[in-house]
Design a protein around this nucleic acid. Structure first.
Lengths: 205, 205
DNA sequence: GTCTATATTTGGATAGAC
DNA sequence: GTCTATCCAAATATAGAC
């Protein structure tokens, strides 16, 4: 039974391949992570790899699919409820964003995204959609409600959302770079909160 | 004599190699731009390439050197003079940044930087120093002067500089991505100015 | 499903003629 | 300085035995 369960999600070997591939792709990029390295790290021969995936590209695509399935979700009701209270909405968003930044799995995915961003058109389009548009939509919805409730100055919600998310992204990028080299992120660890406070002070009524 | 002039800056072939290599590296990354592709595009054999460069790495290093030699320069006096007037300082900075974003040569370099950022430690460190620290220093110097002259609210100059540059970077990244796919940047072309206005309204006294 | 063996391609680099 | 010829290593991928 337990075996059966596993098989639904792919064999254990297949899962291990995906796990190893995720790590290597996010450290070495598509070209740098050779099938040989992946197989060796998994502990099987290259040929055995082809029992689980048609080719290297297919491994990558399955790994890449995980990039945009972030656990970052706020329901429509939550947006309504939090945005009516103003800052708590931004606080919730910021804390979730910060958690993603420091989450090991999401960190790998983000690194992989940045590596392949300039070399994979599909990834660029998904970046624009999943990383940008979705966040802009979610945030501007919140800002719109805040304006209706006279909590913040009247302005273009999308524009404010853009201003807010851009700094978040930049902080995330910097932290990811530092962590890649195992450098301290102390100086940046409170940057998210600083941004939140600075921003709120500027937009609130 | 004209020949002599050229030789000082390297032969014409060497220059052509660098030009081609810049383009290919910025489109395909270090691994993707093979010596073969470069030689073919230049119109010579691979072996001939080695008359001009010791190896592929050396070509890359010479290309990469150009990444951080941006023509973006404001003298100390200019900072003083412009910052005393407030917004004009930020306007000047923003326009220069916008020009770099749309300048073909700088665009290639920026793309190359983004491609190799996650795979080259030296580049990461230079990014932090040249792209981040330098801009933060320049901007915070300006903000400090503005505070002294009671033009903007009192705050940590470095923190404000961080907020300002992060959005600029994000706009630049987005524009670069769109241009890579030859997509329209109309929706983003005025984003720099929007950011400038929004920001100034928020910090001014 | 994994292994050994092998085919095939691509990539970086050198030797030596012109 | 460029060319032809060649080398060697690494990488993707397949065939067939176990």
């Amino acid at each position: 039974m337990s075996q059966n369960k596993e098989q639904n999600k792919g064999s254990q070997t297949k899962q291990k391949i995906l796990k190893v591939a995720t790590t290597l792709f996010s450290q070495l990029g598509y070209k740098g992570a050779s099938v040989r390295k992946i197989a060796k790290e998994v502990g099987i021969r290259e040929s055995a790899l082809y029992n689980h995936f048609k080719n290297k590209e297919e491994i990558f695509l399955e790994v890449a699919r995980g990039i945009f399935t972030s656990p970052f979700t706020i329901t429509h009701d939550e947006i309504q409820e939090l945005a009516k209270r103003g800052k708590p909405f931004l606080q919730k968003f910021t804390m979730q964003y910060k958690m993603l930044t420091f989450d090991k799995s999401n960190e790998s995915m983000f690194r992989l995204l940045m590596i392949e961003l300039m070399q994979n058109k599909e990834l660029r389009e998904q970046f624009m959609h999943e990383f940008h548009d979705k966040n802009i939509k979610l945030l501007s919805e919140g800002f719109f409600i805040m304006m209706q409730n006279n909590l913040i100055k009247s302005n273009d919600p999308m524009m404010i959302a853009y201003e807010f998310i851009s700094t978040m992204f930049y902080i995330r990028l910097q932290i990811t770079l530092l962590r890649f080299d195992a450098k301290s992120t102390n100086a940046l660890s409170t940057q998210f909160e600083k941004h939140l406070d600075f921003f709120w002070e500027n937009i609130k009524l």
